[in-house]
Design a binder for these strands. Structure first.
Lengths: 191, 191, 191, 191
DNA sequence: GATGAATGAGCTTTCATTCAT
DNA sequence: GATGAATGAAAGCTCATTCAT
């Protein structure tokens, strides 16, 4: 049973972690997920060492920052399958949520594709969570005859993720339009 | 003949430039278009100063590396419109060539979206060359009633470009499949 | 007492800063105030980053190196006005101290005139501190009728500063002699 | 007896040298005597190699650029001694001409004191020419009882040269005023 | 003789990461 | 546990100088 000092310490650590996640989230929006470690530490009002203690690699930090939203998105798949008028509509809605997530988090989509080996773990986490969710909807749509595509859930997610890259800074490019095109193509896939 | 010396010298310089373009091309494949200047110089067996002499900015170098292929692609638009069985088929073929280009040049698609201001000139060059070419085919397809989409040539190219990002390192992701999906969606655009 | 760690750390940093100031001082003597950052760091046995941390610009470092002496010189003006037999004698003594300072710090006088924009701050600091001090003595001398010159304190300091340039490397040139000449001219200014 | 080709070549070379001196002179005014070799070559419309052929060291070039004026100044000493109303007036006039020279040639005074070993030859040339000239006037003044100073011609020239450093860029500093002060001090030197 | 392409040392600056306190 | 000073590898860029043509 931990004594009071330990509890105090743990409470402090928890507060630090929370501050860190907030700071990192803000920094990622403004400067991308490659934001300098120092900047994040400064925003959070902690030393850089504290970041390294709690999040040894950058990927650990990024994963932590987006974990909640990723989990919510994964969970929403089954909800949508239950509530939407059709599997196809559920897919549209779910992808819409995915685009929301990526477009809001400036630079996240790009970071996932940056090729930086240090971000591999991040990549893996996203895939592990989201691909199965997407696959469930896709299978339902296939079973319902609403698509004949053989494109995998993984491929679909990668495609949508890619389409969102750079969408924040470019007024002439609307990620949603082209994602809609892609989904239409999915519905009318070759017999 | 006073030009002899000049020409001879130019021949040497030309050889260096060629070596540089080869080296840069290789470096771009392995390390992306942000490959360190020093590394490129070393590969080419020249000093860094030589790079700066011929290509003052990184964009100059990247443009030079890809210029031929970009020009050829731009020129192929009209050829395809004349030879293909339909504007729609011409579009498919042209986009196919575009995908070829991007997938082969590892990291180029990503670089075009890196947001680095120093690569703006590069971005502009690609757009200036390719968007009009794409627009001509898209217009022909529209006139022929083979698509009703209002997606701009710019958006289409950006979308295809994005879909190609990271395709070379990922066995589970096939850019051509999803590009095909996108083009199918284009054909069956909302009435 | 939570400050212990902080203080201890500060003691270390202070030692580094001191080493840095010593090293910079020595480097300035040998290679001028434009001495390479690397060299200074090496002399001090620290990494270059440490210099940038404590002294973001070169001017910051130079100012720090000479701050004490500049401050002491500025403060000595009033002391001398109180203790010397006349304002004129005070001026002689103060200028003597100024020459001491400049001649000892090899290359400083030259650096102040190098025109390097990065050294502007340094220049400003020296002027802000010393010109008012000099002006007080000059005014006192004028009030006492010991000079009728209309040369400003700024001009006088610039002149003396210039006269000290290069004095340390030249056996045939004695800055004090010519400064004495200048001060004599000041006393016997045109009737 | 040189053949026509040789003459042609010599004529070309002479033209190049002239262009080079003009270009260097202009460059020195704008960027100081440390102006980049390339810039000077470009101004002159020649290759950098041509500069190195004719002026192996920077000092050679600087000396060549100012040789005419230095010679004229040296020669003017005896003229002034003959024409001026007194040796003292001749000294004033000669120093005035020296100041003219230094203040017009931006940065020259500073360059002479830069400590750059490559400029030693330059320094020597100036001294060899001008110190004897100055000494002749100074001796005459001494003989006429118009000064009792024991300051050497070398020291006087160095002092005046120093007083001119940086005078071009500083509205608050007037080299002539302080040079006048120095000369006044010279006249009223201690008995 | 002239050219200017090439070289590469040398400088500044940034930042991820470590570790003494 | 937390801190942030220190480190030093990396990278970009600039010229003075050489030398093949």
């Amino acid at each position: 049973m931990p004594d009071a000092g330990t509890n105090r310490r743990r409470a402090d650590a928890a507060r630090n972690i929370a501050a860190l996640l907030d700071a990192a989230s803000a920094a990622f929006v403004q400067a991308g997920v490659e934001a300098p470690v120092r900047d994040i530490a400064a925003r959070a009002g902690v030393g850089v060492g504290t970041i390294y203690r709690h999040f040894p690699t950058r990927a650990d930090l990024v994963v932590a920052v987006y974990r909640h939203q990723v989990d919510a998105l994964a969970a929403s798949a089954d909800v949508l399958l239950g509530s939407a008028t059709s599997p196809s509509a559920a897919l549209d809605a779910w992808i819409d949520g995915f685009v929301d997530f990526l477009v809001t988090k400036h630079g996240l989509a790009g970071a996932l594709r940056s090729g930086d080996p240090g971000l591999e773990a991040l990549h893996a986490y996203f895939l592990d969570e989201l691909v199965p969710a997407c696959a469930r909807i896709l299978d339902a749509a296939r079973t319902a005859g609403q698509t004949t595509t053989d494109v995998s859930a993984y491929q679909l997610m990668r495609a949508v993720g890619n389409l969102c890259i750079g969408a924040e800074n470019d007024e002439r490019y609307d990620a949603r339009s082209v994602v809609a095109l892609l989904l239409r193509g999915l519905r009318y896939a070759a017999p």
